[in-house]
């Protein structure tokens, strides 16, 4: 069902949909963007089915589980995502390269705490591409990093006994070579 929204027809894409966050901020977004949020799309479709006679929809869609801060970031990400897709409609490889480039830049401006917020928002909105991207971002926070860095990043503390920790270090001694600096 999300496939339909990937190629929005030009007339409907100019329609705006209003989203209201838990902190009472109101966002007016293009329909094509809002339709990437499956939760919104579902709400929108249900409303339209119930109000077939009411003509143009002026629905305000409440998002009681999403705050304005992550929503704003998700909207930006979504717009860019659609734009890159449209620009490379016939070249999947180019699209992937552009997307990768954008995502790398994007992550430079995201703090670890924000990542959790964004994942929860993307999950609630059922915005699959973003959820996949943020989960990958979390996984890549571990890539080539020291154990200490990973603990700090995720706010976790070691619960190994001193002896156990030493044993792990010994077993994995070789694996602590070649890690990036924290």
């Amino acid at each position: 069902m999300s496939n339909q929204s990937e190629s929005p027809n030009p007339t409907s894409s100019s329609n705006k949909i209003t989203l209201k966050t838990s902190d009472n901020e109101v966002f007016e977004v293009e329909e094509a963007v809002a339709m990437k949020f499956c939760t919104v799309k579902q709400y929108f479709d249900d409303e339209n089915n119930n109000n077939v006679t009411s003509g143009t929809s002026t629905t305000l869609i409440p998002l009681p589980n999403v705050e304005s801060h992550p929503l704003a970031i998700l909207i930006t990400y979504c717009k860019k995502h659609l734009e890159i897709k449209a620009n490379n409609a016939d070249n999947k490889k180019e699209m992937e390269i552009d997307m990768e480039h954008y995502e790398r830049e994007f992550l430079k401006n995201v703090m670890p705490q924000e990542l959790t917020e964004l994942i929860l928002a993307a999950n609630y909105l059922n915005f699959k591409e973003a959820l996949d991207f943020f989960c990958r971002a979390v996984a890549s926070a571990i890539q080539n990093k020291s154990v200490e860095y990973v603990r700090k990043f995720f706010g976790l503390e070691s619960d190994f006994k001193p002896g156990e920790e030493e044993k792990l270090r010994e077993e994995f001694a070789w694996s602590f070579e070649g890690v990036d600096e924290d």
Partner: peptide
Amino acid sequence: RVSYEQFKTVSSVCK
């Protein structure tokens, strides 16, 4: 989504 060669790092973080 973590790459397999990071499993030992993941294993060393906590129980």
